[in-house]
């Protein structure tokens, strides 16, 4: 608001200075004519000399007054311009699009807040599994395996249901599910993209390939699945085809000799 007011003052000052200049041009032209005419008359009639002197004094006074006026106007203009510049709202700071190097992709681990809402799930399967595997603490791993096999990850609701039905504690589930990298706590995408981070691929730029894929799929920092749950990126050790480095495996299809520019082509028709 203040900024806008200052901007208006700036414009008014500039307009005033311009108008003042225009007036000065016109006034000077007119007074030049008057002085010339007077000088002509004075040559004939010396009595008019006083009038000529008065006219010339008027010109001097006008210039002096204009100087003072301009000084004040430009002072106001400078102050207003400074206020206008200071009051300018800053452009909002953009959030980095690329992921941070430091934050790697960790599978399993502590529950992450996913951007997209988890799909509604049917918990009848959990009851079925618990009935089959038993309610003891020793059944924890088979139950989790069954849930993972069915839902393709460990949904929070299913785990909560397991805690309700059995003697298994939430702490035990958290410990087990985060210890084994096979278990994952966030929904997995339709297709698994395995980016090879073996020595050869690492040297050939697997890091950049991963970054490029993550950027292309708009996978948020700390997550491994894109918002539409189509792709899940995994960093894996050697895929066994080092001569094709860097290599990406999309489900069962392998693509090699990639560059950041061609990495997305490997996603094929799924993308």
């Amino acid at each position: 608001m203040k900024g806008r007011a200052a901007g208006v003052v700036v414009l008014v000052c500039v307009a005033a200075l311009t108008a003042d200049y225009a007036v000065k041009i016109a006034w000077t032209a007119a007074s030049d004519v008057r002085v010339a005419a007077l000088q002509e008359k004075v040559r004939a009639d010396a009595g008019l000399a006083a009038a000529l002197a008065a006219e010339q004094k008027k010109i001097a006074d006008f210039n002096q007054a204009r100087r003072t006026r301009i000084n004040w106007l430009s002072l106001v203009l400078i102050v207003a311009a400074a206020a206008f510049l200071v009051e300018q709202p800053k452009a909002p700071r953009r959030i980095p699009e690329k992921p941070q190097k430091a934050a790697g992709v960790r599978r399993g681990g502590k529950p992450v807040v996913t951007g997209a809402a988890a799909p509604e799930i049917d918990l009848a399967f959990v009851d079925e599994v618990v009935a089959r595997e038993g309610r003891g603490t020793e059944a924890a791993i088979p139950i989790l395996q069954a849930i993972q096999a069915h839902y393709r990850y460990l949904p929070d609701e299913a785990l909560r249901r397991v805690c309700e039905l059995t003697e298994i504690t939430p702490a035990q589930i958290a410990g087990t599910s985060s210890f084994y990298s096979r278990f994952r706590r966030s929904p997995v995408g339709e297709h698994i993209v395995r980016v090879c981070h073996g020595t050869a691929c690492h040297v050939a730029g697997a890091r950049q390939i991963t970054d490029e894929l993550r950027r292309e799929l708009k996978i948020a920092e700390g997550e491994d699945t894109d918002p539409s749950r189509t792709f899940t990126i995994e960093e894996v050790a050697c895929l066994g085809c080092c001569s094709l480095a860097p290599v990406v495996m999309v489900d069962e299809h392998t693509a090699g000799n990639l560059t950041p520019a061609t990495a997305c082509d490997a996603l094929g028709e799924h993308a």
Binding site: V42, A46, A49, A53, Q56, K57
Partner: peptide, 18 residues
């Protein structure tokens, strides 16, 4: 060059700004 006044001096001053 101006006309001579009553006091015997030229009637005009040269300086435009006095």
């Amino acid at each position: 060059k101006s006309a001579v006044g009553k006091d015997g001096l030229p009637s005009e001053k040269l300086c435009p700004r006095d």
